[in-house]
Amino acid sequence: MPGPIDIQSSEWMELVESEERPVMVEYWHHKCVACKQMKPIYEAQPELFGNEIKFTRMNLLESKENRKFAIRGGVRSTPTFILYCQGRPVGQIIGSRRPDDFTDEIRALVDNAENCLMATPLEEE
């Protein structure tokens, strides 16, 4: 299972909004110590959730556009992990966590996102 995909704000439509699965986006930057602490923990998640969630991350130091995008989306601290369904935020985790707690919280967010999955157009029979 590959690790989280690095995304740019310019790729939002293509990589997050048009995705049928819930998408997790980590807003982080490479000078943020809490982000560094969370890196191995976040990178271990795709293995645990399989294809259920798409894991991505956006580096806020990579471009001004990324920073402005995160600010508009309500990010006020790094790392912030926001789970989206077709681009709509359904829940967030702010700051660092111990590995098990982090996985449990993601699980709770996905369970919460069930109604959002129902809104996905079903294949016609």
Partner: peptide
């Protein structure tokens, strides 16, 4: 150090 980037 952690949060300055959020205030672009």
């Amino acid at each position: 150090t952690c949060d300055a980037v959020i205030y672009e």
